[in-house]
């Protein structure tokens, strides 16, 4: 995704963000700050800042999946009942299909691609324990599990099952997930209680 260019209406100098342009207009031209265009949002996705102009009906899922090409978030139920589109927003696991992109201005979002790029141990423990069959719901599980471990580095099996109970898997991989999450928790804690 290329950063949109923001040309100055006074001198045509290009800026990489609306905020930079605003600062320039105030400082360089002594003009009133520009109003923020409707639908312009700035958010941090996987550690990178992005600006997008979105329609009110654009969901966060559509933004990341269709426009940013972060296709790991999947749409299974489209009504908030399956967890496949989960991303982490400001530390909370949220359903991107039930989140309006226009309400994500200033938010920090982490997707499965970010979790994988950070080499989170969950990825390999998920592979090892065969937590996927068709794999369609898997990224949603991993992201939800990651949010859990961020909050609770040493969850019990019951806590893991509770946390993942909003993620549906039609292939029926459920029994494997607590094993993978427990092992990843152990790895994150330096293998102190690796349970394999």
């Amino acid at each position: 995704m290329t950063t949109p260019s923001y040309p100055c209406p006074y001198c045509a100098a290009p800026f990489g963000s609306h905020e930079a342009l605003k600062a320039h207009v105030v400082a360089g031209h002594g003009a009133e700050p520009l109003p923020k265009p409707h639908g312009l949002i700035a958010l941090t996705v996987n550690g990178e800042r992005h600006e997008h102009t979105v329609e009110p009906n654009t969901t966060l899922y559509t933004l990341i999946h269709d426009r940013m090409g972060l296709t790991g978030a999947k749409m299974f139920c489209d009504r908030g009942a399956c967890g496949s589109c989960t991303v982490i927003m400001d530390g909370r696991p949220v359903l991107s299909c039930m989140t309006l992109a226009i309400e994500c201005d200033g938010k920090t979002v982490e997707t499965i691609e970010g979790v994988a790029a950070a080499k989170h141990p969950l990825i390999e423990t998920y592979v090892k324990h065969h937590c996927m069959q068709c794999g369609y719901c898997t990224p949603g599980f991993v992201v939800t599990a990651k949010a859990l471990l961020d909050k609770n580095p040493d969850p019990t099996e019951e806590e893991i099952r509770e946390a993942l109970a909003g993620n549906l898997c039609r292939c029926g991989t459920y029994p494997q997930h607590p094993r993978a999450v427990t092992e990843a928790a152990g790895l994150l804690q330096g293998g102190r209680h690796e349970k394999g």
Partner: peptide
């Protein structure tokens, strides 16, 4: 180690 594991766990498997 399953061949499709990483692709699927990391969200890079294409559907």
């Amino acid at each position: 180690r399953r061949k499709d594991g990483y692709e699927k766990a990391s969200g890079y498997a294409v559907y």
